[in-house]
Amino acid sequence: MLSILKGIWVILSHTFRRRVTVQYPDVQPIMPPRYRGRIVLTRDPSGAERCVACYLCSAVCPVECIALQAAEDEHGRRYPEFFRINFSRCIFCGFCEDACPTYAIQLTPDFEMGEYVRQNLVYEKEHLLISGPGKYPGYDFYRMAGVAIGGKDKGEAENEEPPVDVRSLMP
């Protein structure tokens, strides 16, 4: 009983508290850098596309709004032939960013994505790809991976020995 009265009193006392609402759009809010807004595809420090089209983002997406097709250039580097996000379905959960092994897909603090035509919410690769590395400036997946690509032969990645000479019997 007393707790009820106390509750009523606490609520009443809020009559004189400051209001916390930010009067958007009159006042522009400052979003934290890890806010989960518009999704972008980033590039690695050398300026090449980071996405290797591993399909993990599309697999983890709970609303299945990511579709892509893998392709490979003549030197063995993988990239998405197309990469489509249907933002009219996206729930900005950030699972795709969590799943991405190459830091390619990232969520940004931009949330102002309203459109009058729903079709305009379908973003293709050219809409998603930005020219920088986003939140993770130094990372380059292919420096860690074992596959050879143009400009990086076998054994040239980080922490790799030069390729084995199969014809040698030396220990």
Binding site: R17, R19, V20
Partner: peptide, 8 residues
């Protein structure tokens, strides 16, 4: 309700 919840 908004008043008591610190809203507008």
């Amino acid at each position: 309700l908004a008043l008591w919840q610190d809203r507008y």
